[in-house]
Design a protein around this nucleic acid. Structure first.
Lengths: 330, 330
DNA sequence: TTGTAGGCGTTATCAG
DNA sequence: CTGATAACGCCTACAA
């Protein structure tokens, strides 16, 4: 049964052709001298007989594969990670020209280094041509370090501060600052920051931008967290007239609860999100947000990785600009 | 340079241990008799010296890898595919126990079989332990067939009609029927169906459910398409008082445009979406939708694939139930 | 329980 | 330009 599906090997194939395995190999490899006539013949016959180079044998000799891996701290909720989706789209769209293939590796967000063993293993098995690591978590850093230590091409994506090379960063403090300043300039009086994961940077940026006291509320990373945050806001800070949410998902959930509660946005309560995921534009009211240009982040990360793959020892880190996109909610 | 990162091989490692490579292999393979004492010793020493089995060599002898691939027809827009995101979440969450790794392969939605060569190659290279194929496109079918022909474990996910085995399906006609019937029962007079990809099934189901004439409008698969559809609706079918959108993204875009245009939903105009992606619950008004239980679809698909991987020749196809989830928009 | 040795399918080196 | 042949690193009979 299995045997009936057994593919023909280079040896058998070469025999049929009456040539050597070396020549067949050359026909498929683009390097190594070979007359275009024999290549033609070989390629055609291959199509005919269904011969294809075995990728594992190939990887074994080449000592690496054509797959690049994306590692990211997983959201432990029941909702997809929209932040990730946008970045991944950018990545995927640009992998084709590199003839690489994408592998997805979510890891536990709160993992300590010792718990990253499984991923380090993957990394060190020589399975990947290169990797992209998302996030600022301990796990992320563990991965990035392991990659560097072992000479594996690796681009890190995350908030500042970032190493001077091989990383792509954005300045959350600056982004949140924009929101704070905007609220100050538009005369809002009682700002609240609704936090996502522990990240003092956004909170600080927001406070500095506002140049005044801001209240803090625990948020999270799901629509539901956002809705819950609204309920808490009503109880704890009823005077609030503007909020910055640590991410758009939170903001959308928050707005939903506020809207259903009869709050007028932005008249009574302004809200600004963070990340600028696509749905932000299509909720009611359309959500103002600090854009991280997520798609571009993805695109750029594979460009950088491409250079590494191409032979560069390292590439200078780059940053992506944050902007405040004003829509209807603020 | 590269050499400094060269990992130790089984031969060298065995030599250091003063044992044979076979024993080392056994220590790592869980099968093959070996005293737990020597295994202990070997595993520990391995950790010490940083020895890890080379995955490519492993794959070569095993004739397959531990990666499973997800193939899906790509949305050619600038937005992530939210439908896919939900399914992928379900898949990812259940891959860990299988100790498998996920690879992502978007392909051109309108690809004809001849253009699927690249993916067929991947498939036939023996690279995958198994695959999951999404969609009802020609490309999807090509892939599924190739897999079956070559004895590669494969689960297809898509709308009915589906083959009797190895596939996971949902009944779009039945789903859309629910929406049509609901509109009939709630006294709506002028229904419009806003189409996504060419899929007569939903349209038919909707019409049958409504048991009357329904107008059709081209839609698409992005928020923007939805918004545009609203504009066209105003011009072409101004009397419309209820719509079914082929997917939620469309519906959300549509509602946004309607809302900004001062339309009262659902009073003047009811809208129902399809797929029930998470954001549907958090837009204003909350979107009624035909749920496909996308997450469960993902979960179930890996369960089925798991059986195939476990040795079953084939598993009976299963279906996932569609339900109409009523929220605020209808 | 452990060791020996051949094989997995390619690629790379070195002659020819 | 083409052919032999030795790696690549591991697994698995088979033998001990």
């Amino acid at each position: 049964m299995l045997d009936s599906h057994r593919r023909i090997t280079i040896t058998e194939f070469a025999e049929i052709l009456g040539t050597s395995t070396a020549t067949v190999s050359r026909a498929f490899s683009d390097k190594g001298r070979i007359s275009s006539k024999t290549r033609q013949r070989i390629l055609q016959k291959a199509a005919e007989l269904g011969y294809r180079p075995n990728i594992h044998a190939r990887n074994l000799t080449a000592r690496h594969s054509d797959t690049i891996a994306l590692f990211y701290p997983e959201l432990r909720g029941e909702e997809p990670d929209y932040f990730l989706s946008e970045i991944m789209l950018g990545i995927n769209r640009n992998l084709i020209p590199l003839k690489k293939t994408l592998q997805i590796h979510p890891f536990e967000r709160n993992a300590i280094p010792d718990e990253m063993g499984r991923y380090i293993d993957l990394l060190l098995n020589g399975s990947f041509a290169g990797i992209i690591v998302l996030g600022e978590t301990v796990g992320s850093k563990t991965l990035v370090n392991a990659a560097r230590h072992n000479g594996i091409p690796c681009i890190g994506i995350g908030p500042a501060p970032a190493p001077p090379t091989n990383s792509l960063w954005f300045d959350n403090e600056a982004g949140a600052f924009l929101a704070g300043k905007y609220y100050r300039d538009t005369g809002r009086r009682h700002p609240v920051y609704i936090a996502g994961f522990a990240d003092a940077t956004k909170e600080n940026g927001f406070r500095e931008g506002y140049a005044g006291k801001v209240n803090i509320l625990e948020g999270g990373h799901s629509f539901r967290h956002g809705a819950l945050a609204y309920e808490r806001l009503v109880r704890e800070f009823p005077e609030t007239d503007c909020v910055l949410c640590a991410n758009d998902v939170l903001a959308i959930g928050f707005m939903k609860a506020a809207f259903d509660n009869g709050r007028r946005i932005p008249a009574d309560l302004a809200v600004i999100g963070y990340d600028d995921i696509h749905p932000a534009r299509y909720v009611n009211p359309a959500l103002s947000s600090v854009t991280l240009n997520l798609y571009d982040l993805g695109v750029k990360s594979v460009q950088m990785l491409g250079q590494l793959l191409f032979g560069e020892k390292e590439v200078p880190s780059e940053s992506i600009q944050c902007d405040l996109i004003l829509r209807q909610s603020s």
